[in-house]
Design a protein around this nucleic acid. Structure first.
Length: 426
RNA sequence: GUGAGCGUAGCUCAGCUGGUUAGAGUACUGGACUGUGGAUCCAGUUGUCGCGGGUUCGAAUCCCGUCGCUCACCCCA
């Protein structure tokens, strides 16, 4: 029999790792809450067109979608990212009618069919936000500030924030035209990827990683020289508010993002040492997307981050979950132990017990490997109504009356108590 | 889609240029310690050597194929 395995590019997350994911999600929720964002949970799959209309079918992400037909031959796709789904939902429920600026956040799995490697999976987890309904460049700065706030809360440092403006549709069009004009002259000498880009997405030639291409494309106009007056003003306002918030940034006039829907402000947060994937979070404005998906003409700005990459860039260890109590017992007293476990749990004390009787030595060993704070030992003393309570960290033990044990343990659970054992808990 | 490296015990790996019964550490179980954990020592359990074929008297070892994993390119979170 062949061993069944999780599909390529997917992973089972359990143990310490699951705690880490939950930790990040908890931190993210609390940060988003502080900035006034509300959670939205959209379906994991949507009609294919939701994504192809927003991301662009010809983009790499468009090609990497998991698409299938259901029993009624509806063409559906697993979401490769969540901005499109959130906007679809925003339009569907006319969220624009209830508030001027709708702030939403999401957490969950995304799917892209590609070759897995460090920091890149076929099913991966993203968190992100969308603020829909405001043109203010201050909001752009706020979104970036929030993203950085999240990183610092997670203990992630040593990153670089790169920002740029790719302008409105008009700027983008003239920019593309200018690039094509220049590229014509050197097209034959560019790498094959760039030649393809020239056809499909000329502006992306600007961030080709090929050294020879970079050398040749130095002369290409970047975004800074081409913004119209309005876009220029917006960008400098946004930069001004970044300074106000004392955020360090690098303006990268060659930063253009891969998704079709971006406009004006774009940004990336990068950190070295994550394998080949150095972008941990990215985002920007998408002032035309809502309209393109059939909604009113409403501007929006958002960002997203990949949990796998956040984890790679965190060097902090998350405290492990430790039980309060381990119940050890001599096999004669299984029922007493079983009952005690039940009582402790009813009192919100977490406890472990092995319901298959083992030697005391074995149980103590287990208690210490599971890092229980106390071990309760039920032995012959129970006949006199007494129970042994062992402080595992201080290696001391005492006998205590059976009926007092709950009270005693609850009291010791108070962190203010000087006897409260050193125990890390979030 | 392209390229490279690696698949041996639950986990981490050794096993060189083919040679008899496939190893270590760790984990697990028991004992030294008959009701007390992290240390030490002793003993025990664990394998279709990824799968299929070929070369050979003989293959974990060499060759071919295949599957899987990993990393990188591309792209991206």
């Amino acid at each position: 029999m062949e061993r069944i395995k999780a599909p390529k590019g997917t992973a089972d997350i359990f143990g310490k790792e699951a705690n880490l994911y939950r930790y990040i999600e908890d931190v993210a929720r609390s940060i988003f809450d502080i900035y006034g964002y509300c959670e939205i949970r959209t379906p994991i799959f949507e009609e294919k067109s939701v994504f192809t209309r927003s991301v662009g079918e010809e983009t790499e992400i468009g090609k990497q979608m998991y698409t299938f037909a259901d029993k009624k031959q509806r063409l559906l796709s697993l979401r490769p990212e969540n901005t499109a789904g959130v906007i679809r939902s925003y339009i569907e429920h006319s969220l624009y009618s209830s508030s001027k600026c709708t702030k939403l956040y999401y957490l969950g799995p995304m799917f892209r069919y590609e070759r897995p490697q460090a920091g890149r999976m076929r099913q991966f987890y993203q968190l992100g936000t969308e603020a829909i309904g405001s043109h203010s460049p201050l909001l752009d700065a706020e979104v970036i500030a929030m993203a950085l706030h999240l990183l610092s809360e997670l203990g992630i440092n040593g990153y670089q924030l790169k920002i740029n403006s790719i302008g409105c549709r008009k700027c983008q069009q003239t920019h593309t035209e200018q690039i094509l004009l220049e590229v014509k002259k050197i097209k034959e000498r560019l790498c094959s990827d760039c030649q393809e880009r020239a056809e499909k997405n000329p502006r992306r030639i600007l961030d080709c990683k090929n050294k020879a291409c970079q050398e040749m494309t130095k002369c290409l106009p970047d975004t800074s020289s081409l913004l119209c007056k309005d876009c220029k003003d917006l960008f400098s306002e946004m930069i001004h508010s970044m300074e106000l918030l004392e955020i360090d940034y690098i303006i990268d006039p060659r930063l253009v993002r891969g998704l079709d829907y971006y406009s004006k402000t774009v940004f990336e947060i990068q950190k070295e040492g994550l394998g080949a994937q150095n972008t941990i979070a990215a985002g920007g404005r998408y002032d035309y997307l809502v309209e393109e998906l059939g909604g009113p003409s409403v501007p929006a700005v958002g960002f997203s981050a990949g949990l796998e990459r956040l984890i790679l860039s965190m060097d902090r260890n998350i405290p492990e979950q430790e039980p309060d109590i381990y119940i050890a017992y001599l096999s004669d007293y299984l029922e007493e132990a079983f009952l005690l476990a039940n009582t402790l749990r009813k009192n919100c004390l977490s406890c472990l017990i092995d319901l298959e009787p083992k030697s005391l030595k074995n149980q103590l060993k287990e208690a210490s490997s599971k890092a229980a704070t106390w071990t309760v030992i039920i032995g012959d003393e129970i006949k006199n109504g007494k129970i042994v309570l062992k402080d595992m960290k201080r290696e001391k033990q005492l006998e205590i009356k059976e009926e007092k044990i709950i009270e005693w343990l609850i009291k010791r659970k108070n962190p203010a108590d000087p006897l409260y054992p050193v125990k890390k808990r979030r």
